[in-house]
Nucleic acid binder design. Sequence first.
DNA 1: AAACAGGCCTAAA
DNA 2: TTTAGGCCTGTT
Length: 281
Amino acid sequence: MVCKERDGQVRISLNDDFDPVKIFECGQCFRWNMGEDGAYYGIARGVPARISKEDGNIVISGTENDFRNIWYDYFDLSRDYSSIRKAVSIDGYMKNASDFGEGIRILNQDRWEALCSFIISQCNNIPRIKKIIETMCALFGEKRELEGREFFTFPSAVTIAALTEKDLAPLRCGYRAPYIIGAARAVAAGEMDLDALSSESFGVALKALKGLNGVGDKVANCVILFGLHMDDAFPIDVWMKKAIGTHYPEGLDPAVFGGHAGLAQQYMFYYQRSGAEDIIK
DNA sequence: AAACAGGCCTAAA
DNA sequence: TTTAGGCCTGTT
């Protein structure tokens, strides 16, 4: 992988398994949006960025140092996705799903942000999820700027922990407000040590997260996959239920994916939600 | 207007 | 252990 810095951006010559549209639209994150120029704009780890693909190269705003310190890890660039796609292609359906999802990468998101975001996501639709999160960041995050655009950092658990449900009223997040505050207080107080959990087993992490009010199986699995970056998590939502019901009516043990259940789930989810399969039929 | 959206909690079998 | 009903809110 060659990385060149020029004009305030780095250009990375990596062609395989990096498709910004799929990465940002596959449902794992809520804070990246496509601009009029076709590039994606967002903010992670307190740093705003512009991400695009030009002439087969990945182009990321910032310095080579930013790339080394932030984006290389954030985009999970050390993993070989083509070999994982091969590994999860356990049958014709999974081959189709993983081919369709080629270019997806699992982002290494901030743990607290993932927890908070997926609490908000429950029984909700994506536009509203995004709106609630952006409102929260605008109200309680810190302002950043890039190319004349305004961005807001994701507020820390400590910040949210100091608020009340009333403070969250502008978010219009309904019954999720006490869940958010409860989770923030647990994290801020150190009762819920997400950093420590990330080096625990899946089972330990699952049990701990489900101890939070408002966190059930689905949200916990999303946090473990997208925030704690454990690839044996396997979130099952309504889309996954449809996919499993159609292709594995006898049931599906995530263990068949050999430690890559998380990515397998993402390919299934993205394939199912795209409706691509139905179009073929 | 009524149903639904990337669930979760509680109560009741 | 599984199931039903309620829950904030915005959109269709």
